[in-house]
Structure formats: structure tokens, C-alpha cells
């Protein structure tokens, strides 16, 4: 109690050992989080290419984003939002369906779960280049299979009209990640509630709709928020296209920022773009959190 009245200096002197334990992480946060945020905000109001110190302080980067560069940036934002709006819900539905299929005591279920999860753990760059090979318009097996099924060939990511759809479908290869979260949510749905619904004469589908899904809403909300934020920051496509794709059809916002910073060394502009992205991510998260009345919390 007396310690409370004495100042910080006293605390530093008596509890210096405690401060040594937290010193590394506090320094880490200051150097690798606080300083970057502050300097990023500063750079975003300057022209900066690393070779010379930042110069030309003003709003020019933000003005450029919404005027001269808007044609490209607007398209980039559009692609990113469209990707998020389509891929996140469909991915959630597919992974939920897969989890339902694997949420039972059947022989081999454990092995199936692991197999469906495997795409998640292998190196992303191997996956990207593997898909580039599969969807190769000439030598890829995707077109060979399409032809075998009597369907027309496609240019996949190289054709602006199919590029985004291809990337979305390829993304479904990773539904194992969400499947694991669904499985744990399903395991926690009370068996008594399901039994009660069954005794009331509810069929499997009715039970799913009125017991299982409401009980899973916290997981639905969690996956919705985290995968939306992740989807808005998509960058992996860059390794398939090496840029923005044909006619910028795959110029995701994350790719745009990367290209501005590390290809064109316009670091000031790239920082401004990352703040615009931050605002978009923030708005989307806020909207999701505002609308979370449908989430059922047990306690």
C-alpha cells in the first residue's frame, strides 16, 4: 500500500528485476510497432524514395490516390472487395459443410480431417507455383480435365474475365483451415439440445438450422471477422502473376501497395495507400462488430 503512494522512480528502483523481464517486449513494441506506425503516418504525407530524406510535406499522396491514380486504385479496391465478399462467405459455407461431413464417429474420419488440412501446412510459394502449373493454358492438367469432360478450355488467371474467379476457386483448396475451427465448434454443441430437438420431432435439417447453427454463431462471427480482414489484405496472388495480372485484373490492394513501395520505390505513396487500406479494414471490422447482435453467447 505504501508502495502505491511512492512514485514510479521508487518502483523502478525496487522492482527493477520485474522491468527487466518485460523490457525486451516493450522495446520490441516501441521499435517494431509504435515507431513504424508513427513514421508510416509521417511518410504518407511526404515524397520518399529512401535515397533522399523525405521531402515535399503535404497531402499530395492522398490527393493522387483519389484523382490521377484513382482509375487504377479504384479498380484495385473493387477487386479486393469483390474477392472478399465472394470468397469469405462461400469458403465458410464449404468448410462448414466439410466439417459437418467429418463431425461423426466413423472409421477413418481422423485421417480424412488431416488430409483435408494438409494444403494449409505446405509452403505457400510451392502451392502458388503448383497452381500456376495446373492452370497453365497449354500444358496444365486443368484444361486437360476440362477437355476430357467435354468443356471448353480456359485461360484462367491470364484472361481478365476469369482471373478473379480462378483465384477464388483456388483459395477453396485451403478450406481445411476453417474446417478445423468448425469441428471444434460442432464438438461443443450440446448433445442434449440436439437430442431434445430430435424428441420434439425435428429432422436433421431442422436441428441443424435451429440448434447447431445458432450454437455456432460465435465461431461464425470469429471466422467472418478474421477471414474478412485477411482477405482484404490478400497478397499471395502476386506470386502467381508477378504483378497485377492481365490488365490489372488481379491487382489486389496488397499487391498494389507492394508494387508502389518495392517496385517503384514510392514509399510515401505506398504508406498513404496502406493507411487507406487500414481505414477500409477498420470500417469493415466496425461494421461487422456493430452487426453482431445475431451472435449467441452462452454466458
Amino acid at each position: 500500500m505504501t508502495n502505491k503512494k511512492r512514485g514510479l522512480i521508487y518502483d523502478f528502483r525496487t522492482n527493477w528485476k520485474s522491468y527487466i523481464f518485460v523490457l525486451p517486449v516493450v522495446l520490441g513494441v516501441l521499435i517494431f510497432s509504435v515507431y513504424p506506425i508513427v513514421s508510416s503516418l509521417f511518410y504518407s504525407f511526404t515524397d520518399y524514395n529512401i535515397a533522399y530524406p523525405p521531402y515535399n510535406f503535404g497531402l499530395q499522396n492522398y490527393i493522387k490516390a483519389f484523382t490521377t491514380d484513382w482509375a487504377k486504385l479504384g479498380k484495385s479496391i473493387g477487386i479486393t472487395l469483390l474477392y472478399t465478399v465472394i470468397s469469405v462467405p462461400v469458403n465458410m459455407l464449404l468448410s462448414f459443410g466439410l466439417a459437418l461431413l467429418l463431425d461423426r464417429a466413423a472409421k477413418g474420419v481422423g485421417v480424412f480431417r488431416v488430409l483435408f488440412y494438409t494444403p494449409v501446412i505446405i509452403p505457400g510459394i510451392v502451392v502458388s507455383l503448383l497452381w500456376v502449373d495446373i492452370i497453365d493454358p497449354v500444358y496444365g492438367i486443368a484444361n486437360a480435365i476440362l477437355q476430357g469432360l467435354g468443356l471448353p478450355k480456359s485461360n484462367f488467371i491470364y484472361d481478365p474475365s476469369t482471373a478473379l474467379a480462378t483465384v477464388i476457386v483456388i483459395g477453396f483448396w485451403n478450406i481445411g483451415a476453417n474446417m478445423i475451427l468448425w469441428l471444434s465448434a460442432l464438438k461443443n454443441v450440446s448433445a442434449e439440445l440436439k437430442e431434445a430437438a430430435r424428441l420434439d420431432g425435428a429432422g436433421a435439417f431442422k436441428t441443424l438450422l435451429s440448434v447447431t447453427i445458432p450454437m455456432c454463431t460465435p465461431t461464425i462471427f470469429y471466422i467472418l471477422v478474421t477471414s474478412s480482414i485477411a482477405a482484404l489484405q490478400t497478397f499471395g496472388v502476386y506470386f502467381m502473376t508477378g504483378g497485377g495480372g492481365t490488365d490489372d485484373s488481379l491487382l489486389f490492394f496488397g499487391v498494389k501497395i507492394y508494387l508502389e513501395a518495392f517496385r517503384s520505390t514510392r514509399f510515401g505513396y505506398a504508406c498513404a495507400l496502406s493507411w487507406i487500406m487500414f481505414v477500409i479494414v477498420g470500417l469493415v471490422s466496425c461494421a461487422l462488430f456493430k452487426s453482431n447482435r445475431w451472435v449467441y453467447y452462452e454466458d
Binding site: I31, I50, Q233, S274, V281
Partner: peptide, 29 residues
């Protein structure tokens, strides 16, 4: 130690931070 609460909050708040923002200035650093 006295600053436990505020320091903990400071550290945990960085979990919310998108890497997008910190990536470029960290590179410059």
C-alpha cells in the same frame, strides 16, 4: 510492478495492428 496493466494493454493492442501498416516503415528502418 506498477506499470504492469498499462504495459500489458499496450502490448496486446498491437495484436490488432495490420502488418500492412508496419511493413514498409520496418523495411525502411
Amino acid at each position: 510492478f506498477k506499470l504492469k496493466k498499462p504495459l500489458f494493454v499496450l502490448i496486446m493492442s498491437t495484436l490488432m495492428l495490420p502488418t500492412m501498416i508496419t511493413q514498409i516503415p520496418t523495411y525502411i528502418l
